[in-house]
Design a protein around this nucleic acid. Structure first.
Length: 894
RNA sequence: GAGCGCGUAGCUCAGGGGGAGAGCGCUUGCCUGACACGCAAGAGGUCGCAGGUUCAAAUCCUGCCGUGCUCACCA
């Protein structure tokens, strides 16, 4: 066995083994209770980033743990077709080849995207395997699969027939680079520096009167159809009803009174451009104003503006409008300002409010039951406070624009007759059938060219992946799923929509729990991004430190309700832990030799230390199980870490060496038995978090004839299918536990004294112990070997009363420890050390005394608290008193 | 502007009414027959500030300060 664990030698091998053995498979026809998770499908174009690594590690932990607990665990993997991202990517590829989407035509282009998907679409799922994620690969889904597409059409048709989907002409967020509508959520509001341009609009029929408006978007003035002032604004009251002469465009526009105008803001008069501003749109509707669209789809000015400006880009137009206004003396002034501007989160260009026909979902209607489900606790967010984020959004939800002017995605199942009549149907034949009925004859139809927002299909994911609308065995057994594990950034995009759609079409919530984990940031707390160059690539980490080290790090850091600051040194720390496990096991294997596999089951003749470590193990088993149950991943990892390193390695293994190197054959077998038992149980606790090393070591144990019981009975041929340890009170040995804890304190005390005088670790000396009670005396006698060995002593004297004259001392509750010193003690230094110690303890004693002297405390505090406080008082008093003695001794010497 | 978090050791973070914790870093000493990705011993903290509730507050409440995120508005 290598001195250092090498993940490369084991990871691939065991992953292949798990697949070969079908451990990943769920079994809908089986009798086991179900536990199911659907993966938040990563973009098919994506590659594994650190956020995916965290998200999928947590899901894998839950699935592996539940499988070991005897559940029929289903984890559905898959990817999302990511309409815009994928289309953009393939278009870029085409560009390099000198081809283009437009020249190719729709069918060819879509075919090309599919071809790309076949060739490269599995990148991210391949990378998930490297992480050790073990979903049910036979259930892998893609949002554009035929089955899922069928579900999408069905949902569209049903919602349309209920009028929950409708077509409407209103302002949308239009991305002029991608030439498609996007939803509110896909708009990124960024604060930028800009200007207010104050424009003077002449009043019609007056040569010297003006009304001044301020704008951050001068070019839109070409589409103005009114100027609004507040009805109560005295400054402008006389102008209401008159017209302003819109400069440049040379049109009269009415001056209207509307409460939207805020007298406090700007000039108090506001230009109204109903076709290019959401607020103005509302004003326009109220007053029946014309809506003049001045842009084409790429945000170049169209023929609705004077010829001079036609064809200009919106920013060129802005420049020219300002210039022209200034030339006409109508530019009043320019103010600097900071304001927010909407950007497309994909394209990065400024989004235009643009008047188009789009398909909408009546989200408010679907939201009502979705709100109720969470209010009533049928869905539980962990941590709970995310519920308020969820509620706030759903209670103020806007119609959801679901149509996208793209080619890659689910084409909307709507067909138009020559007169614009709409036929929504599952298939083209059905549409034609309906048209024939409607028109009374065969009629040519034109299909709506648009596709649906990608989130529309991912909103169906928890049931569309399980075969809906068919009532498949999978759907029956695994819906609702047990938990959704995801980041808070897609609560609106995805979580809320799944809940709305799940309740609508399954009449049942899509998942019981929603576990929201944090975002991974760099060590300074900044978001990781390619542009800032601070990304930690999970694949690099795996390459360098192994998947288990990465997984353990992420798990240990996954505290609830906090983002994760990740850095390489932290990962290395957990890699060291993985290596520690390797070496503890290596130690065991080196000593296993003639191991009798029956030894681990014997309970007779267990030593105090055996019982102590078994107690610690049992406590660990309980805490790990409880932590997983509560999604407290960090705690589970922490408990395992401390148990394994600070108890098993630091104390148990060390305590056992004399036995292993001694000549008591029975004791050796018994000890090996306990070592094995503890190790294999610890490996099981570890397995959900660190699957590879736990499997590797378990397989090596099997080489010695050691096994774990399998969930399905018999011996487990892999730790994956072993039965997760259960807490057993019979394995708690309180007395032995306490006894060893005292011995550990004595050992630490002795080591402390050794360090004080700078003794070389190999130098064996003798100490004098003075126990306060008979019980402590007996325990020290019983554990002499332990103390001698772990404190590397040559001898140990248990004193009655006499304390050694020339010695340095250390006091722990109930025991005084003396290390006799050859030659002279440095009295000054020693006095200082003891005084410092007394000072520390005195402070604590003071606090206790204060409490105990408070009659109200004695009266009102619970009895156990008072009792405990008294015990503390006794302990501390003992220590102080003994150290005072030491001090006076020191004075005698001096 | 509104909502939600977070301020605990040098750093990253647990804890969450009753003796201040971990990891990393730091100091000192060690290649001790699993491991230097290691072992041992240490140093280091008015638990952001101010009030309040309580026998008892790092912990609960209120306010303030600092900090982060989300949503909304911006002529």
């Amino acid at each position: 066995m290598d001195k250092v664990y090498d993940p490369k030698k084991v990871e691939e091998k065991w992953y292949a083994y798990w697949i070969e053995k079908d451990y990943y498979k769920s079994s809908p026809s089986g009798k086991k209770p179900s536990y199911s998770i659907v993966i938040p499908p990563p973009n098919v174009t994506g590659s594994l980033h650190i956020g995916h690594a965290l998200n999928n590690t947590l899901q894998d932990i839950l699935i592996r743990w539940k499988r070991m607990k005897g559940f029929d665990a289903l984890w559905v993997p898959g990817t999302d077709h990511a309409g815009i991202a994928t289309q953009m990517m393939v278009e870029r590829e085409l560009e390099k080849e000198g081809a283009s989407r437009a020249r190719m035509g729709r069918d060819k282009f879509v075919e090309r995207v599919w071809q790309w998907k076949q060739e490269s679409g599995d990148t991210i799922t391949r990378q998930l395997r490297r992480l050790g994620a073990l979903p049910d690969w036979d259930m892998e889904r893609f949002t554009m699969d035929e089955g899922l597409s069928h579900a999408v059409r069905k949902v569209f048709v049903d919602l349309y027939s209920e009028k929950l989907i409708y077509k409407d002409k209103r302002l949308v967020n239009w991305d002029p680079k991608l030439c498609t509508a996007i939803s509110d959520l896909e708009v990124d509001q960024r604060e930028v520096s800009g200007h207010f341009w104050h424009f003077k609009y002449p009043i019609e029929g007056s040569s010297d009167e003006f009304i001044t408006v301020a704008t951050t978007r001068p070019e839109t003035m070409l589409g103005d159809t009114a100027v609004a002032v507040h009805p109560e604004d005295h400054r402008y009251k006389h102008l209401v009803g008159k017209n302003a002469a819109l400069p440049l465009a040379d049109r009269p526009i009415p001056i209207i009174a509307d409460e939207y105008s805020d007298p406090e803001k700007g000039t108090g008069a506001v230009k109204i451009t109903p076709a290019h501003d959401f607020n103005d749109f509302e004003v326009g509707r109220r007053h029946g104003l014309p809506m003049i669209n001045i842009f084409d789809g790429t945000a170049h000015l169209n023929d609705s503006v004077p010829p001079k400006y036609r064809g200009l880009d919106r920013f060129e137009a802005r420049r020219l409008v300002i210039e022209d206004m200034e030339a006409q003396g109508l530019l009043d002034k320019i103010e600097d300002t900071r304001h927010t501007v909407p950007y497309g989160d994909r394209s990065g260009v400024v989004v235009e409010p643009w008047l188009t026909d789009q398909w909408y979902v009546d989200a408010a209607t679907l939201a009502t039951p979705a709100i109720k489900a969470v209010e009533e606790g049928r869905i539980r967010f962990v941590p709970k406070y995310w519920e308020s984020t969820y509620f706030e959004w759903l209670r103020n939800i806007e119609p959801w624009c679901i149509s996208r002017q793209l080619w890659w995605g689910h084409q909307i199942p709507a067909w138009y007759g020559p007169d614009g009549e709409i036929f929504v149907a599952m298939t083209e034949e059905e549409a034609y059938g309906a048209a024939k009925k409607h028109y009374g004859k065969e009629t040519e139809l034109r299909r709506d060219p648009d596709v649906l927002d990608t989130w529309f299909s991912s909103g169906l994911w928890p049931f569309s992946t399980l075969g809906w609308p068919e009532r498949t065995p999978e759907l029956e057994k695994y819906y609702p799923t047990s938990v959704l594990v995801t980041g808070f950034d897609i609560i609106f995009f995805w979580v809320a929509r799944m809940i709305m759609q799940g309740l609508k079409f399954m009449d049942e919530v899509p998942f019981r729990d929603v576990y929201i984990h944090g975002l991974i940031r760099d060590e300074k707390g900044h978001k990781m991004s390619k542009t800032s160059g601070n990304v930690i690539d999970p694949l690099d980490v795996i390459e360098e430190n192994g998947a288990d080290a990465l997984r353990f790090s992420l798990t240990a850091l996954a505290t609830q309700g906090r983002d994760i600051k990740l850095s390489m040194p932290v990962i290395q720390g957990y890699r060291n832990f993985i290596n520690k496990i390797w070496n503890a096991s290596r130690f065991l294997f080196m000593n296993l030799g003639d191991y009798d596999a029956g030894a681990e089951t014997t309970k007779d003749g267990l030593s105090t230390y055996d019982k102590w470590i078994l107690t610690k193990l049992s406590e660990t088993v309980k805490e790990v199980g409880d932590s997983f149950e509560r999604y407290e991943f960090d705690k589970a990892a922490g408990v395992i870490y401390r148990f394994f390193w600070s108890e098993y390695c630091d104390w148990y293994i060390e305590s056992v060496k004399p036995v292993l190197y001694g000549d008591d054959p029975k004791g050796k077998q018994r000890t090996k038995g306990v070592l094995v038992r503890v190790l294999k149980t610890a490996l099981q606790l570890l397995h959900p978090i660190a699957p590879f090393i736990s499997e590797e070591l378990y397989q090596r144990l099997r080489g010695f004839g050691i096994g774990l019981s399998a969930v399905d009975g018999g011996l487990a041929e892999s730790i994956v299918v072993s039965s997760f340890p259960e807490y057993d009170v019979k394995e708690i040995y309180r007395d032995e536990h306490d006894e060893v804890e005292l011995m550990k304190e004595i050992v630490v005390g002795v080591r402390n004294l050794r360090a004080v005088i700078g003794l070389h670790p190999s130098e064996k000396v003798s100490v004098v112990l003075l126990p306060e009670t008979k019980q402590a005396r007996k325990q020290i006698e019983d554990n002499e070997g332990f103390i001698l060995s772990l404190a590397s002593l040559s001898g140990l004297e248990i004193a009655k009363k006499d304390k050694p004259k020339k010695a340095i001392a250390h006091v722990i509750p109930g025991v005084e420890i003396f290390l006799p010193v050859e030659g002279l003690i440095d009295v000054g230094k020693e006095t200082e050390r003891i005084k410092k110690e007394i000072g520390k303890i005195s402070k604590e004693l003071e606090r206790t005394e204060k409490k105990l002297s408070n009659p109200e405390f004695l009266e009102r505090a619970p009895e156990e608290i008072v009792k405990k406080e008294r015990e503390i008082f006794e302990e501390l008093s003992f220590q102080i008193k003994k150290m005072e003695d030491v001090l006076s001794k020191l004075r005698e010497i001096a």
